[in-house]
């Protein structure tokens, strides 16, 4: 889903670049000073995990897919810190030639800003519903995996909308890119489940939804009572 330079018109790249800068500035303001220094190395590890999982593609004939990781990192660290992790990973990916420099804003908007906020809200809603029926660790695993599936498909749909600016893509292209990501998103959900399972077992304190989380202060950044998952 990393769009290279030279595909979408320059005006769209510039608009989404400005929008993305606004999201990144907001995210920095939301995270700054709310983070415990002891949790920083865990966040570095998360960035490394997401980079590695985006680096290799799994087969989905006739195409392929890779992890996006936005929902997972947003559930762990809250949407704003998650957004910054994705911004960092996408920057390195752009340096690696995967996704353009001019389209960085568009790629960040799709896989970072939108996907972190949408995925986090959806996962939070699912988590609250599931927590009544199962223990919170199972609930966070199931909620995050399901939300990552839906978020990947919706992010692909949004990319398809943006690609309407490309002559020849059209409504058929929109349907196809959304449809193929409905299959690719199964891989996203499975990888999300496996990686989350590791962190749930090994370091549950960096999952903002769980009781006793050391990063819970980052998660209710929307400052609304309904956005406090630990309550």
């Amino acid at each position: 889903m990393h769009v290279p330079d030279g595909v979408v018109p320059l005006y769209l790249q510039l608009i989404l670049f400005v929008v993305s800068i606004a999201f990144i500035v907001t995210a920095v303001r939301r995270v700054n000073g709310r983070l415990d220094e002891r949790t920083v190395p865990y966040i570095g590890v998360l960035a490394a995990v997401i980079f590695a999982a985006q680096f290799v593609n799994f087969p989905v004939p006739p195409s392929s897919g890779h992890l996006i990781g936005s929902t997972m990192v947003a559930v762990m660290l809250g949407p704003w810190a998650g957004m910054l992790v994705i911004a960092l990973v996408l920057f390195i990916q752009a340096l690696y030639g995967d996704g353009g420099m001019l389209t960085y804003g568009l790629n960040f908007f799709n896989m970072g800003a939108f996907s972190c906020l949408f995925g986090w809200l959806l996962a939070l809603s699912l988590f609250k519903a599931l927590k009544k029926r199962m223990d919170e660790k199972r609930a966070v695993l199931v909620a995050t995996s399901l939300a990552s599936y839906v978020t990947t498909v919706v992010a692909a749909f949004i990319l398809g909308i943006e690609l309407q600016t490309v002559p020849g893509f059209g409504v058929a292209g929109l349907l196809v890119i959304t449809g193929i990501h409905a299959v690719i998103a199964v891989g996203e959900a499975v990888l999300t489940f496996v990686i989350m399972l590791y962190f749930v077992k090994a370091r549950p304190q960096i999952i903002s939804f769980l009781s006793g989380s050391e990063v819970a202060e980052l998660a209710p950044a929307v400052d609304a009572p309904w956005a406090r998952p630990a309550e």
């Binding site: 889903m1 195409s63 030639g97 353009g100 990319l159 398809g160 490309v166 292209g173 890119i177």
Partner: peptide, 24 residues
Amino acid sequence: SSNPDGFEWALFEFAHVSEPTGGF
């Protein structure tokens, strides 16, 4: 997998939009 990813496949293979060349 060496196949194009979902975005590339939909744009370059399905919609036959020309792939940009000479980029970074």
